[in-house]
């Protein structure tokens, strides 16, 4: 810097900008709001509108390109064909199961970290929970595939993967594999909000509950859970929506045998049948919006 700026002040051009905004308050407001509003309206809402619009186009069967002819055929196929609705039901089942499993694992983990572990251990444990997030998503997906590989009489490595060779048993490449892998992947997203919620829970409440004669289970049910509902709801938004949208790990760990909603959308898009893919996309959109409204009722957004 060549010249010294006055204490607390700015260089000349900046001062000019400052004066401009002070004189025209509305201009300042506009400058402040334009980027986020642009983001929300153009990038988000407009593309949603385009998506719904795209679902209405007819596909030219020869070139596989959308035409400008309008049709409701795609929407009808996506929402009334039982084969496809079946995939939606399966996907919701997987997402719900993963969420419940994450909750069951995360609750005691978060409770231990926040209430039992020593302060010095706490930091280390949080790091340990976050650590898997540093590894690549695909690496973790293929790692699960490698671990789940069943033993085979004919392969190069006949012992199979980690589970088969160490425990002699593996669930193989099926539904269990999908749920296991997704639970592993999204667990940190459940642990963290619950940990944050528990951190805010005063230990005195637990002592008071004990003093009043409540056994641990009763304390858990009547004191901890009600106060944790917003945190759990917040965590479940992550695990549920991430599981519902995932399509690579389900493909990897089932050898392509099990198809979820994301796989259906992907294969339809690559067919290429953009209009039908757009119609399928409305499914997760509706499910997630419904889920978010439900979670908002539970106060999830106060915990984010």
């Amino acid at each position: 810097m060549s010249e010294r700026t006055p204490v607390g002040g700015h260089s000349a051009p900046l001062r000019g900008v400052n004066r401009l905004f002070r004189r025209h308050r509305r201009l300042g407001l506009a400058a402040l709001l334009t980027p986020p509003v642009f983001w929300l309206v153009v990038i988000y809402i407009a593309s949603l509108g385009l998506l719904i619009g795209a679902a209405m186009f007819r596909l030219d069967p020869r070139s596989h390109k959308p035409t400008t002819e309008l049709t409701t055929e795609n929407l009808r196929t996506a929402f009334t064909d039982w084969d496809f609705v079946n995939v939606v039901v399966r996907s919701v089942f997987v997402a719900a199961t993963v969420t419940v499993l994450c909750l069951v694992i995360a609750l005691p983990m978060a409770f231990y970290i926040s209430k039992i572990a020593k302060p010095w251990a706490r930091r280390g444990l949080i790091v340990a929970v976050l650590m898997p997030l540093w590894a690549g998503y695909l690496v973790k997906g293929y790692a699960w595939k490698a671990m789940l590989r069943p033993a085979s009489k004919f392969g190069i490595d006949k012992d199979g993967g980690f589970l088969a060779s160490v425990f002699g048993w593996t669930p193989g490449f099926g539904m269990v594999a999908v749920i296991l892998a997704l639970t592993y992947l999204w667990l940190p997203y459940m642990v963290l909000p619950i940990y944050a919620g528990l951190d805010r829970l005063p230990p005195s409440l637990l002592d008071a509950s004990g003093d009043l004669g409540a056994r641990p289970l009763r304390t858990f049910r009547s004191v901890i859970v009600p106060m944790l509902v917003p945190s759990i709801a917040a965590g479940s938004i992550f695990t549920f929506s991430l599981s519902l949208g995932d399509y690579i790990v389900p493909k990897v760990v089932t050898e392509g045998k099990i198809r979820l909603l994301g796989n259906l959308i992907e294969s339809t898009l690559l067919a290429p049948n953009q209009p039908l893919a757009a119609a399928f996309t409305l499914w997760p959109l509706m499910i997630i919006i419904t889920y978010l409204i439900g979670m908002k009722r539970l106060g999830a957004f106060e915990s984010l």
Partner: peptide, 10 residues
Amino acid sequence: ACGSDAKSAA
């Protein structure tokens, strides 16, 4: 363990 599995996966 994850680390070593990642390697074998790779």
